[in-house]
């Protein structure tokens, strides 16, 4: 039981990183822009958070710092892909390469230093005393609640329960029709891509302030890519995205628990679990559930820049 609590506790912590980045990507992809720069944005957000809390020792300010750097780089990315209609895949890859490189060089003097302040766990009275699940669910830090409860509800409500959300989805499905209906395609795309990038950078801040908690080069370790895959697996839906993130969290913590319990699997094999999980998550549903392919299909205009002249 102690073990299960431990696995779940770590799973929420580890999954939160993916969940936050995946939610950002959901926003971006729902309006039709494929952002492959998550890995770079996370790295930038992570190092910014560490540097920020070194100056202002408050984890919330640290996360604000990550959000801000995400806004800046997100706006650059959106300018290139939305306004100038550059190739989204190439711009995303460029953002990843630049983000990981830039973060490594600005974070050089901070590598390995533990974070000055971190998000501490907050035990919710009564609920956190529940056996087994109490500690795993209700004694997490505030970011975990934000990622797993507040944000998914907010994003879901925004996308599926408001008129504005319908416009967003229309822009992602058929920008030409949306344009004809008087929706400002470029404005919507630009802002949601930027906000999505900002959330991805915040995921980096979460990583260095709530999970690890310190900065080092290569700390994102492919999490940005996993989050990208997660969005597709989740069928571009916010709740599925955070649930998938939790599943990945469980897989990640199993790798270490497996070693601690001497499971007869090579440690190197156990540490590849999250990546194997990514592949499995992408392939299995397609085979098992033919109908899902349709239901979970990507927004029709995903990845395609919008040219009004071609309408």
């Amino acid at each position: 039981m102690e073990l299960l609590t431990g696995i779940l506790f770590t799973a929420f912590l580890a999954g939160g990183v993916l969940g936050l980045a995946a939610l950002g990507e959901v926003l971006s992809e729902r309006v039709g822009v494929f952002n492959l720069g998550l890995e770079g944005l996370m790295a930038l957000g992570g190092v910014t958070a560490i540097i920020t809390v070194t100056i202002v020792p408050n984890p919330f300010v640290g996360i604000l710092g990550s959000l801000a750097i995400g806004l800046v780089f997100g706006a650059v990315f959106a300018t290139a892909t939305v306004l100038f209609r550059a190739n989204q895949v190439l711009c995303g890859l460029a953002l990843t390469i630049m983000g990981t490189g830039l973060s490594a060089s600005i974070g050089k003097n901070y590598a390995g230093h533990p974070a000055k302040v971190v998000f501490e766990g907050v035990a919710i009275p009564y609920l956190s005393d529940l056996p087994v699940l109490g500690k795993a669910f209700f004694s997490q830090n505030v970011m975990v609640y934000v990622v797993f409860i507040v944000l998914p509800i907010a994003v879901h409500f925004l996308m599926f329960k408001t008129r504005h959300g319908m416009k967003m989805r229309a822009v992602g499905e058929n920008p030409a029709a949306a344009d004809a209906a008087g929706i400002a395609v470029m404005t919507i795309r630009f802002w949601y891509v930027t906000i999505g990038a900002s959330l991805a950078a915040a995921a980096g801040g979460y990583l260095t302030l709530a999970f690890v908690p310190s900065w080092s080069e290569g700390i994102t370790a492919g999490r940005g890519w996993i989050a990208t895959a997660l969005v597709i697996f989740a069928g571009f839906r916010p709740f599925n995205a955070v649930l998938g993130a939790l599943a990945f969290g469980i897989i990640t913590s199993l790798g270490f628990v497996g070693q601690a319990r001497n499971w007869p699997i090579a440690p190197a094999m156990l540490s590849t679990l999250p990546y194997l999980g990514t592949i499995a998550f992408m392939i299995v549903p397609v085979f098992v559930w033919k109908r899902m392919q349709q239901k979970m299909a990507a927004p029709a205009a995903l990845g395609r820049p919008y040219f009004r002249d071609e309408r």
Partner: peptide, 27 residues
């Protein structure tokens, strides 16, 4: 002594997860 190898000399994240797993396991 229970050992966890994290395949790196410098990986704060792997080290903290390994430490957590060891403590969860009763160390």
């Amino acid at each position: 002594t229970q050992v966890i190898s994290i395949n790196s000399w410098f990986d704060p994240q792997g080290a903290s997860q390994a430490g957590t797993a060891l403590l969860d396991n009763g160390a």
